[in-house]
Nucleic acid binder design. Structure first.
Length: 645
DNA sequence: CTAGGGTTAG
């Protein structure tokens, strides 16, 4: 009986067969039917042999030597193709291994677990793992558990990891250095500290000395789970031991401090690095710069960038992004532009966001022409402006009242296939509204709907504001109803606009009703909203009522700190000094503020309102002073006496 | 091993 080609593959000739396939791919045609079209035998989901069939022979030198035998085996491609997650997967694997007399080893199983098909689905990995453990004369090695755990972790499948890890712990395999390092790294990355520490203990028990890498993985694990104190302790152990912390250890600790909101401590550690001659690298600076940026501390961000420059470190593109956008947000467009220039000089390409930030900053500081020049420049540089860029341009133009140009760019934006978004519409509506061109504002508001653009609360708010500011509060109220009808949730701004508008029309009761509606909806009033209400009430002579409502806010955890000042300012400005004094006395009587502070506030309010005489009178009197230190007597003169004197 | 896409509105 002639030897079947199938048998050749199972024997020691398999490797030479592999070479033959590479040199003469046409040989594959001569293979028995079950290998050419394995689907017909139920082995493969895909009738076309997978690329692995030939791929391992193309460049064997790239395969690590420990794995070379597997990678070079021609049936590896087939067995991988069997890992398809089909219901017959286990049966197919079983059939294939039997037919080719493939003996499973932990080394081979872990090799297969490292394949790409496993990364796609943790289910397949787990099923393969389970199938293998049921095979005769086979027991999983520690590397198999490590691979499986890493796959499950990569899939974010923490629940199943816990199960598999428990099993792994119970099996009682001997811990190895590489297994410990892999596990500490991967468990650390997802913050499974309990399991990580078990591995650490096992490692120590088995006399494995942790390396610098092991320590760094441990630090990273602790930091990722926000165990900063523990990380600090480990770090101290390193400092006192034979393995000194390196740049990575410092970077990890700095990341930890930054993540816990302690950027200052992170910067302090950077200085310590310098003292101990551990060189900070670009990653050190990136961690710190990002932390500073996230906090809005753009000055520190810039300082760190300059330090990087001085140290002649390679500056990553993202660092430029942070510095430029930071400067732009601070309104320092010139400085931002100068950093942009150094970026270009260093061979870094800008991007849409950097251009957008610069355009926005120039527009906001009044250099609209410079902003438009950058807008053209970015296009010359090969960047297509996006919705945000158009948003910045349109906003800038609207704020300057250059509405026709703003409209032109919104059309231009649509013509370039970009959506005109609610942000742009709200800018335009606001622009027309502020210019008193209510018809056009309304038209745009309706057009949005026709264009299929969903209106957000901003769009309603700006139109409502326009109505309110032009004496059309009833139109604003109608729009408010429509907003509710169209399922758009009002915000604190919506209520502020309506409350101010109603007070302007002396419709106090309605304003107060809306305030209650707002509070009932669970919307927390902000400073502007409180100001609208308190000033509105004060000016309509209801000072006591204003004070009462403000007092009611305290139990809700809202401290209206500038409300007193706002009210006194409003009353003084309206020349209603008597009421202002009464209010000042009332606040002191309630014990809400110390008399000295109220005295200063009232004095400033009088001064601001141009009432110099009374301001001077107050300044030279003892009015409002609560405690006479010299005579140790409690003594307070009512503010009301200011007018009686 | 440690860092990695921001930017627009009242």
């Amino acid at each position: 009986m002639p030897m079947s080609p199938m048998r050749i593959l199972t024997g020691p000739l398999s490797r030479s067969m592999g070479k033959l396939f590479h040199l003469f791919p046409s040989i594959a045609v001569d293979l028995p039917k079950n290998l050419q079209s394995p689907a017909s035998r139920g082995y493969f989901a895909n009738p076309i042999p997978p690329p692995e069939w030939v791929e391992p022979f193309t460049d064997i030198s790239t395969v690590p030597s420990a794995r070379r035998d597997f990678a070079a085996s021609p049936w590896v491609g087939h067995i991988r193709a069997l890992l398809d997650g089909s219901p017959d997967m286990e049966a197919n694997l079983h059939g294939f291994c039997r037919k080719f007399m493939i003996k499973l080893t932990p080394n081979f199983v872990s090799f297969l677990l490292k394949g790409d098909e496993m990364k796609r689905s943790s289910d397949i990995a787990l099923r393969f793992f389970r199938w293998a453990s049921g095979q005769k004369d086979y027991r999983h090695g520690i590397e198999c558990y490590v691979c499986l755990i890493e796959i499950l972790l990569a899939c974010g499948d923490t629940g199943r990891v816990k199960g598999v890890f428990g099993e792994f712990r119970d099996v009682g395999l001997l811990m190895t250095e590489s297994a410990a390092n892999s596990l500490i790294r991967s468990l650390g990355n997802v913050g499974m500290v309990e399991e990580l520490l078990w591995v650490w203990r096992k490692m120590k028990e088995n006399g494995i000395v942790p390396s610098l890498y092991t320590y760094n993985f441990l630090l990273n694990g602790l930091v990722n789970s926000m165990f900063i104190d523990s990380a600090e302790k480990v770090f101290e152990v390193m400092e006192g031991g034979s393995i000194s912390p390196d740049t990575v250890s410092y970077n990890t600790m700095i990341k930890g401090y930054c993540r816990s909101g302690n950027t200052e401590k992170g910067i302090k550690l950077l200085r310590e690095m310098e003292e101990r001659t551990v060189e900070p690298d670009k990653i050190t600076y990136m961690i710190l710069m990002q932390a500073c940026y996230a906090r809005g501390d753009f000055d520190s961000c810039l300082r760190l960038y300059h330090e990087m420059e001085e140290k002649q470190l390679e500056i990553p593109p993202h660092a430029y992004s942070l510095v430029i956008t930071g400067l732009c947000k601070d309104g320092k467009c010139m400085e931002g532009y100068s950093v942009y220039n150094s970026m270009v000089k260093n061979g870094c390409k800008a991007n849409v966001a950097i251009y957008t930030a610069l355009i926005d900053a120039y527009a906001k500081c009044g250099s609209m022409d410079e902003a438009m020049r950058l807008f053209e420049k970015m296009k010359d540089d090969g960047f297509q402006p996006d919705e945000v860029t158009y948003g910045a341009v349109i906003n800038g133009l609207c704020k300057l009242g250059r509405l026709e140009e703003a409209m032109f760019y919104s059309e231009h934006c649509r013509d370039s296939g970009l959506a005109v978004n609610p942000t742009m519409y709200s800018c335009l509506i606001d622009g027309y509204g502020k210019a008193g061109r209510l018809d056009e504002a309304e038209k745009l508001f309706e057009k949005m709907g026709e264009m299929g653009c969903t209106r957000d609360s901003y769009c309603y708010n700006v139109l409502m504001d326009a109505y309110g500011k032009h004496g059309k509060i009833d139109d604003a109220l109608t729009l408010f109803k429509r907003m509710e009808y169209e399922h758009c949730d009002p915000t604190v701004y919506t209520f502020t606009i309506l409350i101010s508008g109603l007070f302007t029309e002396h419709r106090n009761e309605e304003a107060l009703k809306l305030w209650d509606v707002m509070v009932d909806k669970g919307i927390t009033p902000n400073v502007a909203c409180i100001r609208a209400l308190s000033i509105g009430l004060c000016l309509s002579g209801k000072v006591a009522r204003a004070c009462k409502i403000l007092d009611e806010l305290a139990p809700m955890g809202i401290i209206p700190d500038s409300a007193t000042e706002d009210m006194l300012n409003a009353l003084c400005k309206a020349g209603r000094i008597k009421e202002a004094c009464k209010l000042a006395d009332g606040i002191v009587d309630r014990g809400r503020e110390i008399p000295g502070k109220i005295r200063t506030v009232l004095l400033n309010a009088l001064r601001k309102a141009g009432n110099v005489d009374l301001a001077l009178k107050l300044m030279h009197s003892k009015i409002g002073i609560g405690y006479d230190r010299v005579h140790s007597i409690k003594k307070r003169v009512k503010f009301r006496t200011l007018l009686d004197l």
